[in-house]
């Protein structure tokens, strides 16, 4: 079972439908105690950083334990950003599971970045099996992640700045775009994530 953390902001139908399509057996989890039976965790991407951290705080202890236990975690969009230390968007602290900052998109580009942008793959990753350089994914965001350790950056995208689009550190996987809104290529990534449980 893949637990989709429901932190009460926006609908989770798209990610639920997409994981169902790739046989991920998703369950929407509104309470941290329901994480017990999970094989993997998805932190979906809805809302602003401060609200997200406030609403996610009841899940923090369980999340830290499960990450330590090696359970695969996938953060999407704001669900990626909350994994870092802090964001320019809010005074709230992030989870700090990945060292680094979340900063605002640079001047000179339309904000938010909204639409399909290309990946440049920086290193091999099981999450990106079947994905090629130049494949497009759907992004909607005003801030982006700058991990301290550049080695965690698996793929980047260019929007006024070359920024992290996919970050991985051990069992933590994070994508700035929305795989559940990125048509077939997005489903490939979700399928790859589902495969990680079976290993």
């Amino acid at each position: 079972m893949i637990a989709i953390i429901d932190y009460g902001m926006g609908n989770l139908k798209s990610i639920h439908n997409a994981l169902t399509t790739v046989a991920g057996n998703p369950v929407i989890i509104p309470e941290s105690r329901d994480l017990a039976g999970a094989d993997a965790i998805v932190i979906p991407g809805v809302g602003a950083f401060g609200d997200a951290m406030r609403n996610l705080s009841p899940f923090a202890d369980a999340l830290f334990d499960l990450v330590d236990s090696g359970m695969p975690v996938l953060g999407i969009c704001i669900g990626m950003q909350v994994l870092l230390d802090r964001s320019e968007e809010s005074d709230a602290a992030g989870f700090g599971l990945i060292r680094g900052d979340v900063v605002r998109l640079p001047d000179g580009v339309r904000i938010p970045q909204m639409g399909w942008n290309e990946l440049t793959i920086r290193r091999d990753s099981d999450l990106l099996a079947g994905i090629e350089d130049g494949d497009f994914f759907y992004f909607v965001h005003s801030y982006y992640c700058v991990p301290e350790d550049g080695q965690t950056v698996v793929a980047t995208t260019d929007y006024g700045v070359d920024m992290a689009a996919v970050v991985e550190q051990d069992n933590i996987h994070a994508v700035q775009f929305h795989p559940e809104k990125s048509s077939k290529k997005g489903l490939v990534i979700l399928k790859n994530f589902v495969e990680m449980i079976k290993c």
Binding site: K13, S14, T21, E180
Partner: peptide, 11 residues
């Protein structure tokens, strides 16, 4: 929309 979002994964 419900029917569409079951099989169509775009905004």
């Amino acid at each position: 929309i419900e029917k569409t979002s079951e099989n169509v994964f775009m905004p």
